[in-house]
């Protein structure tokens, strides 16, 4: 609340009115609360720490005890002065869902995290300054695909974009975070920007500002894929404003696989039964049913 008070009162603590310019100038102020639910695996936890190291404006908090009363997160964010929440919810010790929200008024998006690889296990050679601000690279389809994608983009932009002039931020840009939309899923990659001194001959001429450097990228990690599931109007509450029809929950997938396996047995069992019935109907089983004897049967002909 302190920040709200400050922004409303427009006065410095010592009584002088604030600079008009500074007050009027729009600023990108973001603070991100990162936390997970209980029951995360080590991989999930490592992803969390990776994101925390990459995002200097983030604040890591202890695991949240509840999975039902997520509105508590709003209070938590208020407590820490955060206006973004990235909440990682683990289900069944294997599935990871990521909630991105803008407390206190929303919106919220719930994403399913798949193909998760942390920085440590990927062993990429890229590295960047801790606290440098990333360039955020978005796919054009975020703009063209529909309104919900623009909302999603906004949420990602504010959660993962490091604001200027933060306490722990460093002044140079040395990594890029890319979000690509393929098949309704958002693929996230992080690369280091490496500038190498190139010889005059092989430098491209389309970079007039600094012709002596070549740009190339080296991946840092982590890697993950996000599938949007649902969007709520409020922060962890409110009406559903978007729901992904194509999303199939991992539970469903597992159940299907199991059912298919069960189906195999059922089919076999059914087949056996059918065969039995057929044999009985033909009178091939002793003591059950009667054999139909027609006119041309040997027993009739040679009786």
């Amino acid at each position: 609340m302190a920040s709200v008070y400050k922004s409303i009162s427009k006065k410095k603590p010592n009584g002088h009115p604030r600079d008009e310019d500074a007050a009027l100038k729009p600023k990108n102020r973001q603070r991100l609360l990162i936390l997970s639910s209980r029951g995360v695996t080590f991989r999930h936890r490592h992803l969390l720490t990776d994101l925390h190291t990459l995002l200097p404006h983030s604040r890591k908090d202890a695991k949240l005890d509840t999975k039902t009363h997520l509105t508590q997160l709003n209070e938590l964010a208020d407590l820490y002065n955060c206006n973004n929440i990235a909440f990682f919810e683990a289900r069944k010790g294997q599935d990871l869902y990521m909630w991105l929200s803008k407390p206190p008024n929303g919106p919220t998006v719930k994403l399913h995290v798949q193909n998760l690889h942390t920085m440590e296990e990927l062993n990429f050679t890229g590295n960047c300054l801790k606290g440098s601000r990333p360039v955020l690279s978005f796919d054009r389809s975020f703009e063209e695909g529909g309104t919900y994608l623009r909302v999603l983009r906004g949420l990602l932009e504010q959660a993962f974009g490091v604001p200027q002039g933060g306490r722990k931020t460093k002044p140079f840009v040395d990594h890029v975070m890319s979000f690509t939309l393929v098949g309704g899923k958002v693929w996230v990659r992080v690369y280091q920007i490496s500038e190498t001194e190139g010889s005059k001959s092989d430098t491209p001429t389309d970079t007039p500002h600094d012709p002596s450097t070549n740009l190339s990228l080296i991946e840092i990690g982590p890697r993950f894929v996000l599938t949007p599931i649902v969007m709520l109007e409020g922060s962890f509450g409110g009406p559903v404003i978007y729901e992904n029809k194509e999303f199939v929950s991992p539970n469903q997938v597992r159940a299907d696989v199991r059912r298919q396996k069960a189906g195999r047995y059922n089919r076999r069992a059914e087949g056996t039964l059918e065969r039995k019935v057929k044999r009985r109907d033909l009178g091939l089983r002793t003591g059950e049913g009667e054999r139909v004897v027609d006119e041309l049967d040997e027993r009739r002909l040679f009786a």
């Binding site: 008024n105 919106p107 955020l136 978005f138 309104t147 623009r150 932009e157 604001p163």
Partner: peptide, 30 residues
């Protein structure tokens, strides 16, 4: 469910002002 009107509204509610310089967000669209 794809409530476009509500989505627009919520987008408007939290979107960053367009007057921000590029360096404030550093977001690029392909």
């Amino acid at each position: 469910i794809n409530n476009t009107a509500a989505l627009e509204r919520s987008l408007k509610s939290f979107a960053l002002p367009s007057s921000l310089p590029f360096s404030a967000v550093q977001s690029v669209t392909s």
